[in-house]
Design a protein around this nucleic acid. Sequence first.
DNA 1: CCAATTAATACTCATTTCGAGTATATATAT
DNA 2: ATATATATACTCGAAATGAGTATTAATTGG
Lengths: 339, 339
Amino acid sequence: MSKETVVSIGLSAAIVAVESEQPVVLVVAHDDSDDALPFGPFDPAHHRTLESGLRKWVGEQTRFDLGYTEQLYTFGDKGRHTPAGGDKGRHTPAGGDKSRHTPAAGEKDRQSGGARVVSVGYLALTRRVKEAPETQWRGWYNYFPWEDWRDARPAMIDSVILPALKKFVKDAPNAESAELRRERLNVCFGEGWDEERVLERYELLYEAGLVEEFHRDAGQVSRGPALGTPMLFDHRRILATAIARLRGKLKYRPVVFELMSPTFTLLELQRAVEALAGLRLHKQNFRRLVAEQGLVEGTGKFSAPARGRPAELFRFRREVLRERPAPGLRLGSRRTRAS
Amino acid sequence: MSKETVVSIGLSAAIVAVESEQPVVLVVAHDDSDDALPFGPFDPAHHRTLESGLRKWVGEQTRFDLGYTEQLYTFGDKGRHTPAGGDKGRHTPAGGDKSRHTPAAGEKDRQSGGARVVSVGYLALTRRVKEAPETQWRGWYNYFPWEDWRDARPAMIDSVILPALKKFVKDAPNAESAELRRERLNVCFGEGWDEERVLERYELLYEAGLVEEFHRDAGQVSRGPALGTPMLFDHRRILATAIARLRGKLKYRPVVFELMSPTFTLLELQRAVEALAGLRLHKQNFRRLVAEQGLVEGTGKFSAPARGRPAELFRFRREVLRERPAPGLRLGSRRTRAS
DNA sequence: CCAATTAATACTCATTTCGAGTATATATAT
DNA sequence: ATATATATACTCGAAATGAGTATTAATTGG
């Protein structure tokens, strides 16, 4: 075993909140460069665990405490370019026909002069919303406009994405590759929207050259459409992983409540879930579900809305964690328009 | 940002197969030490991705190729001791009332003289079953005997685990901690067995001092019951993570097929799923499910069993991956005895 | 060849969950 | 008083689930 297995560890966090029906993510925004997730190095001398390291410098950088956190994935890819060949495995977070996995790309040059960087991505949920200097909350659909189906199927899918992906299929180097690309197109943007496949879709768009990062990583000048707001390094990829994970987790763990105030109306809860899932839900059924699951309990108090009948304020019943095996909000019923 | 953020990366793999109705894992077994998962350092100079590094040395060490692989979790904890205090987050793979996360414990002393080791755990599935020298396949229920409910609820739960955990609750330092422990006991071993909570259960048993690793990590001599076969470092923890992940994934991705021969009977398929889940399933409903999902297709050929009516041989229909959003084997119907 | 055995396969049925409604109640603004 | 916006209750058919029974097709020991 070689002694030179020396690398440095970078920690990135997708810190998520929900504000006025929009899912937002905390980014470090500068005028002269792309938005970045808060990130920093892991200093083994001062921290016992990766997570305590994360909490420490996130605290310093953004001045607030993380609540729920969850490790997402560790990326260790060298370089930022898209290698043509593929020794890669049959699987990984998303999977593609072209080998990519170019995540921590760029950090190497930035962080610790030349050492290889392995980056560990985290998801954090919070309801605190005070910004620190240098950081700001941005709606995550700025980065993934095709992921918000709450009002309607985003028009860009038919007008831009599908034509471009069809071309991508056509341009495949050989028949086998074309077939793979066709399959992926179908899974990602074909019949039946699976809101959890955020990462797969981003990966496909990346490989098809539809996001700016692809051209940047390849050292090219971007031509043609570039969808969504780009991010620094592979941060958009980490954010995609975070959204995918959160959308999945929603269904079997009561994680939404980490994003809610201590008390809330059922509609507020529904709007938060919809914001995260990017889908509309059937109101009556949503209530039935929440009630049946015993996820909330009434407080006896009521909201004072500008218009309309006041709704009862509820609070999360922490006890469900003991009672139910998988208390979540399986969002079966999806509708395009609210009712 | 400090320049001394230097660590080395260790890669460990839980390589899983199913053999004669037993889930087995590849371990490096020596007479003079505990079983270990195959593990090795990640050499950034020679590998572009973590996964290619993994494949490389697993190939060298065990002489065979990995098929499906999936990253599990990255542990970066310092030291092997169980710290009493807790600055830890509200969540992480399992979560406990006492802070632990002591995973790569020990590797630090073993691998690269003094440098901090961060270890990345992987799950790999294979149907190849040729062992290499120094390695052997062992049934995973050797390490987790309380996880196999196929024949019956394991007797050790009532005879050993529950009494010991009740004592653990009683011994809690304060009322709040006792309540937390009681909750965890209930979630892990109470009403309604959730076969996916493998890691949570292992963590609880660890903290309660019911597995040998706890005493080893604390530098104590083990007294009282020590459940299951111990493993080196935190490898049993990684294996628990692997089992939990695999049991979960079974339900929404057709991963079992990675473990099957190219053709198989439906009963063989069911037995494999049961082996992994540690549960018995309802035969007729299992078939109905598999058929409805379009997961398999008949080959027209038949098995030649020693006794009984020959069954048709089926093969996995790779096409489902395109057709269905989440083709898996939701194992709803569980029964204690086969029918 | 027959009976016992082992397993495959077909079919039934009550219960629960799901998706999508309709109907009614309770607020505020005008 | 009416329009509007929301909350909440209830209904109903379709589909999925859990647990059976019944029947068929093979092998093996007498």
